[in-house]
Simulated assay, not measured.
Amino acid sequence: MILTAFLLGACQEKAPEKAAAPMPVEVDIITLEEEPVKLEVELPGRTTAYRVAEVRPQVNGIVKKRLFAEGSEVTAGELLYQIDPASYQARLDSAEAALAKAKAIEYSARLKAERYKTLDRTNAVSEMDLVEIDAGWKQSIADVASAEAALHGARINLDYTEVRAPIAGRIGKSMITEGALVTAQQSAPLAVIQQLNPLYVDVTQSSTELLRLKKDLSVGLLDNGEKTQSDVTILLEDGSEYEQKGSLEFSDLTVDQSTGTITLRAIVANPDENLLPGMFVRARVSKGLKQDAILIPAASLSRNSKGQAVVMLVNAQSTVESRIIDAGRNIGDNVLVNDGLTAGEQLITAGLQKIKQGVTVKAVEQQDALSDQIALKNQPDNSLTPAE
């Protein structure tokens, strides 16, 4: 009887209630927008003097004086060294005397030739004598020209005893002292002059990236405005920005086979000479303006097993959609999207570890994150290196 009562009671128990449906997962999203983005790239480089002149002697002799202060500014044509001029002055005097002698001989030969021409009218001299006298006069004229050339050369050599600055700039240390023997066109310079204002900055860039940039400009993906030269900002070794802006002058015509890079040369004003040749700097080069760029936070992007860039979106049905995109270069904390996303789509930026494709979610707009994205759109491109 007890067992029967128990069984009857169990049959009368109510069936358990059905489990409640789970609440949608809350995720942070941003609505994608197209914004104009100024693309820049930072490239390593070194400064180079605008002009360099190695001062060398053009005559042999003993240096008698050094007439400049090492490390000072010199002007073009300024006297730097004085080589002993005594022997060259003597050669000049000898050349002047030789010229005077040649002119005297020419004068006598000319008078004699004129006299023979007068006598020839009366047949007082033979035709052969007249020819010989006229030839002797013309030879004396040539001797005068030769003596004048020798005098001119002697004067040039005397002038070369004064070694002058070929360009204006800052001169370095002197490689010789008074009393030193120097020779014409010697390999070792007496001193080196460098023009430091303006200054060159030589940087290197991947040849692949340079070709990509030219292609983007040709098809209209990038807008370079009416400028024919790109703006360049110089960053010093301590990370500070140099106050003077530069411009890109040219790119080399040959690719370095060992590194696959090409040299770019920028020119920058250096009025206070704060930049010196050989300094390591970074050049921020403007590449153009992408009018319809889409930036996404780098944290919202992941990679699949094939290395493809993957993002999570919220579609019109409030469910999660996984999509493979073509991710470009990093710009600050964001990533430039080349293809795969359009303006107006909702990108999931937080809560990715709690969701998967097809899950229903509750989207919460991140206004602050979107503002940060727009504010960072002009940050330089740090993803590219010369070795890329």
Rank of each mutant, 00 (worst) to 15 (best):
V232Q: 00
V232Y: 01
T208Y: 09
K65I: 13
A135T: 12
V74F: 01
E345D: 04
A135G: 02
A180H: 04
S108A: 11
A113C: 07
E162G: 04
T228Y: 10
L222K: 00
G239E: 11
V281Y: 02
E148D: 09
I2H: 07
A49R: 00
K18Q: 13
E70V: 07
G260T: 03
D28E: 11
T47F: 12
K18H: 12
E178F: 12
T208H: 03
F68H: 07
S207K: 03
V203G: 04
L190T: 01
R121N: 12
K18E: 15
R110S: 09
I355C: 03
T4Q: 12
T48V: 10
I348D: 00
T48A: 10
Q195G: 07
R110V: 05
I267Q: 01
K64I: 15
E70I: 05
G260V: 06
A124S: 11
N270M: 06
V192L: 08
D272R: 04
K214A: 09
E243F: 14
T254V: 14
A350Q: 10
L199G: 01
Q12Y: 14
E13H: 11
P271Y: 06
I348C: 04
L92E: 01
L210P: 00
E40M: 08
R51H: 10
V192G: 00
A149C: 09
R121P: 02
E241P: 02
I141P: 01
K214C: 05
L248D: 00
K103L: 09
Q186L: 04
A10E: 12
I171L: 03
G172T: 04
Q205P: 00
A269T: 06
I83C: 03
Q317V: 13
